[in-house]
Design a protein around this nucleic acid. Structure first.
Lengths: 230, 230
DNA sequence: CAAGTTAATATGTGCAGACATAATAATGTT
DNA sequence: AACATTATTATGTCTGCACATATTAACTTG
């Protein structure tokens, strides 16, 4: 084997971009040309360039060729783990407490968000997740009962709703939103802080085949930071 | 050609997981076995499974085999674009105003964050980005002069610092952090809101080869939401 | 039995060749 | 000149095949 790896090619390409040999907007040589230069198969060059294109560093189009992205759109990736794992990964002891659990007809704003009809039955659960017995996260969740039949018989004293859904309704699609919000009274009380304090909030809408399964709002305790490498 | 694509295999695998044929934690058949079943080359199966593993749905280890992730860590990716493009993508007309620009010795908290030595010279710039003449984003940036020599001669009246750096110091690594923060006086004034209002903030530390280039704090106007698909 | 060695196995990656497909460039036609 | 048609080209993907590598299982050996 020639010893040329696709990773070797990737670092070489990155070097040339950094050294401004190939500048943002420039067209770079074709796969065939690069394969000849590096003395490897085209498939190897293809994989190298394809992966760089996935990160947004390169832009590729058939026939047009490969160019360095004019303004590279960095893609920041965040791991959205089960909350228990998130807490345990930070070295905390996980515990959760259910503050409220009620079967109710969906209020209108939830109907609109989840696109439910007027008579839709939902399970409304408010949970406090604790790390080392300190409030960590306040969860406000609405579940569309029609979409998850087995949920009536589930026992949430041991496994959190969060985990039950991951195990029993895997691989669902949806959207996630990050935002900042001043704490209201319920949030302030649960998270042991004051009304008005800025909270980092994530809202998630989960679907299985176009049908909304659950809407969650997670309000993190003050001071929370969500970090990732670029 | 058999017509079996790697994407076809991916959707089939996803179906089996959703249908709970293969459940979280289960070991799935080997690449060779799947290639035989689908009547395609192992390379095709390999690409299908490798990509699913990158998204966190599968876990793979040599010899041990491929298994469905026990608690799948969803990976949410956010596009971090140049601010002008972000605003224009939302249909706004972009404009920016430089509120402050000063060459200063790095204050101690910046020294610590960027790991600069005591005599390090920095450029401190505060910029307001506007969409349709409405305050959109307040930017507070520190640049390590030593790391970006050409910056002295740059003209920031036409191109924002943001864009200049992307064009002239491409492909740098670093970290990005999301957090919520109560608006202080400077932020409230710039963004035309009240002190204490919850702001969505992103902080970015950018490096080229271990050397810190710039530290930016971006405070978005109230109401900002950052959304992505799962 | 414990510890070290060897074999077996699933994934990881490379190669050469082929055809598919999208987009551009060249060409011909009215 | 405007438009439709036809090459050309770079990427996209699949096929078999080979060897690399990590890791587990099986097999020695003291």
């Amino acid at each position: 084997m020639s010893g040329i790896t696709y990773q070797r090619i990737q670092t070489e390409v990155l070097h040339r971009i950094r050294a401004r040999v190939w500048r943002p907007g420039d067209l770079i040589p074709s796969e065939v040309a690069l394969a000849a230069e590096f003395g490897c198969a085209r498939a190897t060059v293809n994989r190298a360039l394809r992966e760089l294109a996935e990160t947004g560093i390169l832009e590729r189009r058939r026939k047009a060729g490969t160019r360095v992205s004019p303004d590279p759109v960095h893609k920041a990736t965040f791991d959205i783990a089960v909350i228990r794992r998130e807490i345990e990964a930070l070295g905390g002891v996980y515990r959760h407490a259910i503050l409220q659990k009620a079967h109710v007809l969906a209020p209108s704003f939830i109907q609109a968000l989840m696109k439910l009809d007027i008579h839709a039955e939902t399970l409304h659960i408010r949970t406090l997740h604790l790390s080392n017995d300190q409030p960590y996260l306040y969860e406000d969740r609405w579940i569309n009962m029609a979409a998850v039949p087995g949920i009536r018989s589930a026992d949430f004293s041991r496994v959190s709703v969060n985990e039950w859904l991951v195990q029993n309704a895997p691989l669902s699609g949806g959207e996630i939103t990050f935002l900042a919000k001043n704490a209201d009274e319920a949030e302030a009380e649960a998270l042991d802080t004051t009304v008005g304090k800025a909270l980092f909030v994530t809202e998630r809408l989960t679907r299985i085949k176009q049908v909304s399964v659950t809407f969650v709002r997670l309000a993190y305790a003050p001071g929370y930071r969500m970090t990732t490498r670029l």
